[in-house]
């Protein structure tokens, strides 16, 4: 599974960081999301799925490879 972050859509609410801090972080100057792990391990996927579900900008996708 691969995580896709549509950065131009990101509104920097930080919800992904709250749901999945192992996979996401925020840029310090404007809060825009940073993808730390493009291919997170199985144990992190629940957090990523929550991040996908709660991202207010619908800017995160989890895609099958």
């Amino acid at each position: 599974m691969r995580v896709e972050l549509d950065e131009p859509k990101c509104v920097a609410s930080g919800q992904c960081v709250m749901a999945s801090p192992e996979v996401f972080d925020q840029r310090e100057d404007d809060g825009v999301a940073i993808l730390l792990e493009e291919r997170p391990g199985e144990e992190l996927l629940d957090g990523v799925r929550e991040a996908v579900a709660i991202c207010p900008a619908a800017a995160i996708r989890l895609v099958e490879e």
Partner: peptide, 10 residues
Amino acid sequence: RRSVNAPFLV
């Protein structure tokens, strides 16, 4: 929004 976000970083 990006110009006012920094203080609210998680």
